[in-house]
Amino acid sequence: MAYVTKSPWVIHYDGSSCNGCDIEVLACLTPMYDVERFGIINTGNPKHADVFLVTGSVNEQNKEVVKQIYEQMPEPKAVVAIGICACNGGIFKECYNVQGGVDTVIPVDCYVPGCAARPEAIIDGVVAGLGVLAAKREAMAKGGSIPAPEAPAEEGKEEA
């Protein structure tokens, strides 16, 4: 049994978000939504985290930070991009310093669009991330290494 789906600890990183999505992420922790019901804890420490929540787009200043947080997280791990900014750059896409969505630097498992993403949608995104965690855990248990995610494109995500 994969315990990882029963106790996903999250770390939240604010890229160049307008703070709208961050407030919605924190709203998930309030008594109104209470994600601790599902064992979700906000750790603030990449070494303890299983799910990486990123809000806001990636820019020249923070792409190294995002990469480093991702690398410090032990496997199995999942990345959830929250808000349209984190998905593909959103309204900041055209800015001279913005590189694009989070998937331009690290592999993203779930996209939660919206501006701002609603708490219900964020919880839904994390729950979708649990499936990824369980699959990764299974791959680990079978003794094989986790299939390396495709290297993200350097120049930014192509339009779908």
Binding site: A2, Y3, V4, K6, S7, P31, D34, E36, R37, F38, G39, K47, D50, Q72, P74, E75, P76, R137, M140, A141
Partner: peptide, 22 residues
């Protein structure tokens, strides 16, 4: 709040033992 299940600490530790050692 509603709070986690009573057995949550066991799930947490079970999870920690499943993680990659770093």
């Amino acid at each position: 709040r509603v709070g986690p299940p009573i057995l949550q600490p066991f799930y947490d530790v079970g999870k920690l033992f499943e993680k990659e050692p770093i």
